[in-house]
Amino acid sequence: MRYPAFFKARSAMKLASIRPITVLISRELAIAVLLLLGVSFVVFLVLFLSPGDPFSSLLKEQMTSAAGSHPGESAPWYSQYLLWLANITRGNLGTSIRTGLPVLNEVIRVGINTLYLTLGSLLVTLLIAVPIAIVSARHGLTPVNWVLTMFTYVASALPVFWLAYIVIYISMHRFGLFPLAFGSSTQKWNWLHFMLPVLVLGLSNGTMGEVVRHMREELSRVFSEEYICTARAKGASIWKHAFKEGFLIPITEIIAAKIPYILGGAVVVEQVFNWPGMGRMAWQAAQDRDYPLIMAITLMAAIFVRLGSLIHRAVHIVVNPRSSRE
């Protein structure tokens, strides 16, 4: 109330920026769709170039199940790609060579399991890494911080399968659990079946060190900005002022950048723990050369990555519309 002119100007600026935000976000959506088209083209190209021509047999099988027109034996590559793409948009990704079931349902079923694993372990990583980053950005390099930093280095170099062995061994001999028989037991420790893979992947997906370093650098950069100095001088909370630029933007940025790594780590962890997810299915599909399945899994993984990136861009645009208007 003391500075009415200032508030008026600010609210006017906010009103003026409402429409561009929706425009910017829909632009990001369009870019994401374009990128997914590019992803589908890369997947097509890999399969098209692979020896033995698995792609045209996949296409033929798709066509017969859809009872549409048959592509010629020597159809040019672009018409094969467009036919395949048209089938995908209709939800027809073919059937698995191994099980004979439609691929789309299978991938969605296991994709949800992988989503739980990925989001849970992301949460574990952030819960460990962010406090370390905040403490070391605030207090510099004290002996305690050095120990914490070394811990993040060890965690990000730790082979995830070996950590999984240790965890399985302890749970077998201490709690009488057999995580290799995933989800089959009905004991009171059953919830551990779900917690152990999440904890293992969260601790050693190889991104901990980088999450800490990125958060620490961004936080200390923001802490040395002039507006934080002003806030401190007038006795305001510096956390409140540093929150948006020093915390919200870097954290969504690092989440978006690290989702591919965690999905990659999920392949190994799901394999060790028999977690019925996308990574385990990708392993099985690569073993069996089950082309329709591995293509669908790659597309699904790319959709996850793009969604994470879209959320990051949306947060960035909403928090700081001016910087993204270039």
Binding site: P260, A282, A285, A301, V305
Partner: peptide, 14 residues
């Protein structure tokens, strides 16, 4: 957009 290990598994299959 590609998780590295998933892309490698695709290449291994192809």
């Amino acid at each position: 957009s590609f998780p590295r290990l998933v892309l490698i598994l695709l290449m291994v299959a192809a």
